[in-house]
């Protein structure tokens, strides 16, 4: 399933899951689910997260082989 570097980006920016959740207006459980690859965010949410980290979506989210099957 699509993987992401949110945990690393958070560490760089030094914000918690809860703070990131507040910034993109979702619940903390959602951020946690995305980080642990249990949930794939919508395009809108992915763009919002990228915006918070001031990066491109592709720098944070990337496709895996399994996504093509």
């Amino acid at each position: 399933m699509m993987k992401n570097t949110i945990r690393i980006e958070r560490a760089i920016k030094n914000i918690t899951q809860a703070e990131l959740a507040d910034l993109v207006k979702v619940s903390r459980q959602t951020i946690n689910a995305i980080e642990s690859n249990k949930y794939i965010p919508s395009a809108v949410l992915a763009l919002k997260i990228a915006k918070v980290f001031e990066k491109k979506v592709e720098d944070i989210f990337s496709l895996e082989e399994k996504d093509w099957q």
Binding site: K25, V26, S27, T30, A33, Y39, L45
Partner: peptide, 11 residues
């Protein structure tokens, strides 16, 4: 709605 009704809660 939940307190924070985000896309995953809807899912």
């Amino acid at each position: 709605k939940e307190k924070i009704e985000d896309e995953r809660i809807k899912h």
